[in-house]
Simulated scan of single mutants.
Amino acid sequence: MTRDYGIIPQIEHYGCMVDLFSRAGLLQEAREFIENIPIEVNGVVWGTLLGGCKVHKNIELAEEATKHLAELDPLNDGYYVVLSNIYAEAERWEDAARVRRLMRNRGIKKTPGCSSIEVDGIIHTFVAGDDSHPQSPKMFQLWEKLLGEMKQRGYAPNLSVVLLDTDEESKEKFLYRHSEKLALCFGLLNISPKTPIRIMKNLRVCEDCHVAFKCISAIANREIIVRDRNRFHCFKDGLCSCQDYW
Rank of each mutant, 00 (worst) to 15 (best):
Y14N: 05
G25Y: 14
D95G: 04
I225V: 11
D4T: 10
W246V: 03
G51P: 03
E223H: 04
Q152H: 10
R92P: 05
S136I: 09
Y87H: 14
A97I: 11
A218V: 06
G47S: 06
S115R: 01
C215S: 14
R23P: 00
E71G: 03
Y155H: 03
P9F: 15
Y155I: 14
R229K: 10
K138S: 02
V211Q: 09
P196A: 06
V45S: 01
Y80R: 06
E12P: 03
W93V: 09
V45K: 05
C242D: 11
V127T: 13
S132C: 13
K109R: 07
L203T: 00
G52A: 09
Q243K: 05
S116E: 14
E29H: 12
G187H: 09
E223P: 00
G148M: 15
Q152I: 02
M150S: 15
C114K: 08
N85M: 11
G78R: 05
P137G: 00
G238R: 03
I8T: 14
S115F: 06
K151N: 02
E12I: 13
I219V: 08
P134W: 01
F140W: 15
V81Q: 09
D77E: 14
Y5R: 07
E169R: 10
M150L: 14
H210T: 07
A24E: 15
R3S: 14
E180R: 04
T166I: 09
K173G: 02
R98F: 14
E169L: 06
L163V: 06
L26S: 15
K181G: 08
R153V: 03
E60M: 05
N36V: 09
